[in-house]
Amino acid sequence: MKQKIVIKLQMMDLKTRSKAMKIAVGLPGVESAATEGEDKDQIIVIGDGVDSVALVKRLRKAMGMAILVSVAAVEDEDKDKDKDKEKDPKPEPLPCVYYVNEQGYYQEPNCIIM
């Protein structure tokens, strides 16, 4: 089950921000990580089976301060797309019509120029 983890950190410059991102992405199961917040002081981690407590412990050890703000479940977009496909099916193509010569032999055209 995918989950969205929001962690508040004290990131003063780009060096500390990149350090925190490397730690967050290094855990198994992490699919994406992004910074957000008014001063870009929050990291949002999205992944499947990510241990939020282990992530916060690693960030506290490396960065000093880390606060776990929220952990929430995220629905897959693939399921939403499948639901949309069921609601709006594509129209079926029209059948093709083939004409067959019933006489069974080749007829020459009425007008021959030569």
Rank of each mutant, 00 (worst) to 15 (best):
K2F: 11
Q3N: 12
V6F: 04
I7Q: 00
K8M: 08
L14I: 08
K15E: 12
R17S: 09
S18C: 04
S18G: 05
S18T: 10
A20I: 03
M21I: 07
M21K: 03
A24I: 01
A24M: 04
A24E: 00
V25Q: 05
P28W: 02
P28F: 03
P28T: 03
G29Q: 02
G29W: 07
G29R: 00
V30G: 00
V30F: 07
S32R: 11
A34N: 12
T35H: 03
T35M: 13
E36K: 09
E36I: 08
G37T: 06
D39W: 09
K40Q: 14
Q42A: 07
I43S: 01
I46T: 08
G47T: 00
G47I: 00
D48E: 15
D48W: 01
V50H: 01
V50T: 02
S52Q: 06
S52D: 08
S52F: 04
V53W: 10
A54Q: 14
K57D: 15
K57Y: 15
R58V: 00
L59A: 03
L59I: 03
R60A: 04
K61P: 04
K61L: 11
K61A: 14
K61F: 12
A62S: 15
M63Q: 06
G64H: 08
I67N: 12
L68T: 06
V69D: 12
V71R: 01
A72T: 15
A72D: 15
A73F: 12
D76R: 06
D76K: 06
K79L: 13
K81E: 13
K81G: 05
K81Q: 12
D82G: 06
K83T: 09
K83A: 14
D84L: 13
K85Y: 15
K87A: 14
D88P: 01
E92H: 08
P93D: 04
L94V: 09
L94Y: 08
C96R: 08
C96A: 13
V97S: 07
V97E: 10
V100W: 07
V100S: 11
N101T: 03
N101Q: 06
E102S: 14
Q103R: 07
Y106W: 11
Y106D: 12
E108K: 07
P109N: 05
N110G: 09
N110T: 10
N110Q: 13
I112C: 10
I112W: 10
I112N: 08
I113C: 10
I113M: 10
I113Y: 14
